[in-house]
Design a protein around this nucleic acid. Structure first.
Length: 928
RNA sequence: GCUCGAGUGGUGGAAUUGGUAGACACGCAAGACUUAAAAUCUUGUGUCCAUCUGGACGUGCGGGUUCAAGUCCCGCCUCGAGUACCA
């Protein structure tokens, strides 16, 4: 019988469903292992060959763990809310739920064909009310909480109210939007509404007027990680800054814990580094600059308080509240015009014009707290409102941006640091600021002569003593904007009473997404939910019109898989205590600053409130590399419909045109298919080489427009799922990006057929021998057991496939069909090629699934050798091999080398200076 | 600019962490089987010189450490990813 992958794969996929082979339940007798794939968003395009890479890797690891006695949780579900389905709805009027359901079915169909061991009984969808019930619940919990910096954890907001009643804000150190100060008496006399407004300053989910990334094309605001280089990640539309009242999550409260937590997780260094940069901790000082003839005090943040004697002006962000306050009457027009002009520019324009220095004088002066000098206050858009205090002290001598600004507006430049090995010089002659990371202080009063680190320490001490500022830590991480002016997302469990937000009662959750007639904003510019009929709570109070963003549903999904049907809690105690956390998380690096920050934040909050038992959700995380496309090109001779083969194109003036990779084989174009591919090429003519049309190629992103998309369904149709799985792994290291080239796939398919043939004789009859295997056969097997076991643990799946090929090639030449070899080999192969292994396992007479077989145990005694073949080098160059007993003494080896025939020509006329002998490794003879 | 990662045959990639560079596979070439093709099998395949035995060179570039360097150190170059007026 030939290897009939179609019959085998269909058969076992049915059997697995029928036997519930992948159903998982809590089993306290076995250790748990939780393997998770990053939640896919089911797009309309379906899966291409790059998507399953990570899923195959996690599937192999899950099966391997199960074979090693672990109770493995390996679930799958869908991040089903999102912009594309809604954009499609706007264009076609089709309800996003229908589009989503259709896409999801297609995804499922494609996934099923690959033979994954998911427990589909645990499937979740973020758009399912029984799921978003708990997304809404978590939000209400955050609303009812604040973050205490002293306890370093979240606590119920009622505790804070008690504290206000007892002593106002005194003695409190809590996360807050604005630094407020009031006494208990002041608090008590405030109206209910005023108190509610104040509490928003502390809640972990809060409503506030903030600068947001507004994307007009999508009609919604976006979080920082959803914007790259001033354009939206989804859709690529321009984004501008706008002041809006929005829901936010106080992620910044957890900055330090999110940073510290990275030390306890097993993630790649590069991913941790990305998160560290995104959190952006910097330590420095906050200093107070009194404004001349005013009671206003400017707070500025600096990491280089030691350079304060070099400050020659101050700069405010145009959006800063202080800008208007500090503008004098005669500068008013100019400043207002500048602020307006800045606001009009998109984020993208602002970034593109980094070199353009713009600014305007406010008319006011500040007083340097260290030397009492008066310095002008300017407004400039190089200062960001969102970072630090939105104001800086400018040290043009030692900061590039300040230097450029000073030159542009003719402001004084003072040198305060002499770089190591340099001398003080006239700043008028400088072309750029001078580096100040190391050196000696000058022009700095009591700091003169000190080194930079000494000066930093001394300044900190000084400003604390004189109370002109304080040592301060700053984080770049911003609170997450949580409102979206869209339809297809979780509704907020929020209603408004007297204009103040209130949470929907827990008993009334989930608050289901209402039906609307059109998926567009209302005529009044309200979000789409403004169209919903009776969108009120308790028949009286209007409900929130915004919906939640994409990351809401994906922030705690891994917890839900532990207990997906629980209608009393996000996750039950028993399930949470058993499954605990994710042992292995596999997914793309694109989630580094979004999902992976938000879900860590979300989880830490739930941990603080005692709802889950682990502080960090993902113990080990691996980023699979991107599968790139390998595009093919044809070369059209300009102005003709004639195409010239790659190596002859130098003789012509040509234009390269992308051609569908599916009509090219080994870079040779199928001419007939090409003519039929596009009516434009129906009458195409060709200049061939050796009778063939050879295409050019390049590695590019896999995308429709490059005609290089390869569909896994097609591969499975031609070669089977097991071949697809093996080939995806064989392409290269999991974490590396690499191009997909279908051409190499024959190799792994051939390997599977060779494996099959070990079980079948020439007449295609099953033929397995119960004879004792030979020493060589055992050696091949155990070498493979060791290699596969080690490499799976290292996630080095490409070398596993090579090892299998070597093993089967060797067993093939030994003509081995011994049960004692083939049985363990089938188990080794089961994680990689589950369909074939399951089938062969049955052929071996087993009645239980191969998934529950026992992983073969490596026995080193089978690898023991009596001789070792030494490579013999002369001055480091390998010249010949020498077989020696493994227990040969160095003297015996030395003698053997000296008398060896091949050694003579290298020793001739030279003397042996030294002989290096590394037992069972190498011999190196140093001659000269 | 800063941070991280990577540069090995025509191609994808191996190399036990300092010890035989190019495993395994694709592609290519020659051969076997076949009327023929496909499939399958065998052999060869880093570059250069040589009829062979063989030799020289060779892991982005330039230095260095070492008996021995793809691997370690110093200085560059190129590509990829992330991030960016972050004070």
């Amino acid at each position: 019988m030939d290897y009939n992958f179609k019959a085998i794969e269909t058969k076992w996929q049915k059997q697995w469903v029928k036997n519930k082979t992948y159903k998982v339940e809590i089993d306290k007798d076995r250790p748990k292992f939780y393997v998770l794939d990053m939640f896919p968003y089911p797009s309309g395009a379906g899966l291409h060959v790059g998507h399953p890479l990570g899923y195959i890797a996690s599937d192999i690891y899950s099966r391997f763990k199960r074979l090693n006695g672990f109770n493995v949780l390996h679930p799958m579900g869908y991040d089903a809310y999102g912009l594309p389905a809604e954009q499609y709805a706007i264009q076609t009027g089709q309800h996003p739920a229908i589009t989503t359901e259709k896409n999801l079915e297609r995804y499922r169909e494609q996934l099923d064909k690959i033979g994954f061991c998911y427990d589909w009984d645990r499937e979740i969808k973020t758009c399912d009310p029984s799921y978003y019930h708990w997304t809404q619940w978590a939000f209400t919990q955050m609303f009812d909480s604040y973050y205490c910096n002293q306890a370093k954890k979240a606590a119920p907001i009622s505790t804070l109210v008690e504290a206000f009643n007892a002593a106002g804000t005194s003695g409190l150190d809590v996360a807050q939007t604005e630094k407020l100060a009031f006494t208990a008496d002041e608090w008590k006399v405030k109206s209910e509404k005023e108190q509610q407004e104040i509490l928003l300053n502390y809640r972990l989910a809060y409503l506030a007027d903030t600068m947001v990334n507004w994307c007009p094309a999508l009609g919604t605001v976006l979080a920082n990680d959803e914007v790259k280089e001033g354009i939206s990640v989804r859709g690529g539309h321009p984004v501008e800054q706008k002041l809006m009242r929005q829901w936010l999550l106080r992620v910044s409260a957890y900055s330090e814990r999110l940073l510290q937590g990275l030390n306890d997780v097993d993630w790649t260094d590069s991913l941790k580094e990305m998160q560290r940069n995104w959190i952006g901790k910097s330590e420095g000082a906050e200093m107070k600059f009194q404004v001349k003839d005013s009671d206003i005090v400017m707070d500025i943040f600096t990491t280089r308080a030691d350079t304060v004697f070099g400050v020659s002006f101050m700069v405010l962000a145009p959006e800063s509240d202080l800008t208007a306050q500090l503008t004098t009457a005669d500068q008013k027009d100019e400043v207002e015009a500048y602020v307006k002009a800045t606001a009009k520019r998109t984020e993208r324009e602002r970034q593109a014009e980094v070199d353009k220095v713009t600014g305007v004088f406010s008319g006011s002066y500040a007083i340097n707290p260290l030397n009492g000098e008066e310095i002008p206050i300017w407004v400039g858009d190089y200062v960001l409102a969102g970072y630090g205090t939105g104001a800086v002290m400018a040290v043009p001598g030692h900061d590039t941006r300040d230097f450029k600004f000073a030159r542009q507006f003719n402001l004084p430049i003072i040198q305060v640091v002499i770089p190591e090995g340099g001398e003080a010089s006239d700043t008028a002659t400088w072309e750029d600021s001078k580096d100040s990371k190391a050196g000696t202080m000058i022009n700095s009063d009591f700091l003169n002569g000190l080194s930079v680190p000494e000066a930093i320490a001394k300044t900190k001490e000084y400003i604390r003593e004189k109370k002109v500022g304080d040592v301060q830590t700053n984080y770049r991480l911003r609170d997450a904007i949580f409102s979206r002016q869209r339809y297809w997302g979780e509704p907020f469990p929020v209603y408004y009473k007297d204009d103040m937000p209130q949470m929907v009662d827990a008993a009334d959750l989930p608050l289901e997404l209402p039906e609307i007639d059109k998926f567009l904003p209302t005529e009044q510019g309200e979000p789409p939910l403004g169209r919903a009929k009776n969108w009120v709570y308790k028949d009286a109070y209007p409900l929130e019109l915004n919906t939640m963003p994409g990351f809401a549903g994906s922030s705690a999904y891994y917890l839900r898989y532990m207990d997906p049907k629980n209608d009393k809690a996000l996750v039950g105690k028993e399930a949470n205590e058993y499954w605990q956390d994710v042992d292995l998380y596999i997914g793309g690096t694109e989630h580094a600053t979004g999902h992976l920050i938000y879900s860590r934040f979300w989880n830490k909050f739930l941990y603080d409130m005692g709802h889950v038992i682990k502080d960090e959700p993902y113990k080990k995380l691996i980023n699979q590399g991107m599968i790139q496309g390998r595009s093919n090109f044809v070369y059209r001779i300009n102005g003709t419909n004639k195409f010239v083969s790659l190596n002859l194109k130098g003789d012509y003036d040509t234009t390269a045109i992308h051609v569908d990779v599916n009509i090219v084989s080994n870079d040779v174009l199928d001419l007939e298919k090409f003519k039929n591919w596009n009516p434009e090429y129906k009458d195409a003519e060709f200049v061939l080489e050796d009778g063939k049309y050879v295409c050019g190629w390049a590695v590019e992103k896999m995308s429709k427009s490059m005609f290089n998309v390869v569909n896994p369904d097609d591969i499975i149709e031609d070669y089977g799922a097991d071949t697809l799985r093996l080939y995806e792994m064989f392409l290269g290291p999991l974490e590396q990006s690499k191009p997909w080239d279908t051409n190499g796939i024959d190799g792994v398919h051939k390997f599977l057929r060779k494996t099959w043939r070990l079980f079948y004789d020439k007449d295609e009859k099953l033929n397995i021998s119960d004879e004792k295997p030979s020493k060589d056969e055992f050696k091949v097997l155990h070498k493979t057991i060791k290699k596969i076991s080690d490499d799976i643990e290292k996630f080095s799946f490409n070398t596993c496939v090579s090892a299998f090929m070597i093993c089967v090639n060797e067993l093939g030449s030994l003509k081995c069909n011994k049960r004692e070899i083939l049985e363990p080999l089938t188990v080794l192969l089961a994680p990689f090629a589950p369909h074939m292994s399951e089938d062969l396992w049955e052929k071996l007479g087993k009645t239980e699934t191969v998934c529950d077989a026992e992983w073969p145990v490596f026995d080193a005694s089978h690898l023991a050798e009596s001789t070792f073949s030494y490579p013999v080098s002369f001055n480091g160059k390998m010249r010949f091999k020498l077989d020696m007993p493994v227990d040969a003494t160095n003297d015996a080896i030395e003698a053997a080398v000296k008398s060896h025939e091949s050694a003579q020509k290298w020793l001739e006329g030279k003397s042996i200076r030294k002989m290096i002998i590394v037992p069972k490794k190498i011999i190196n003879v140093v001659v000269g």
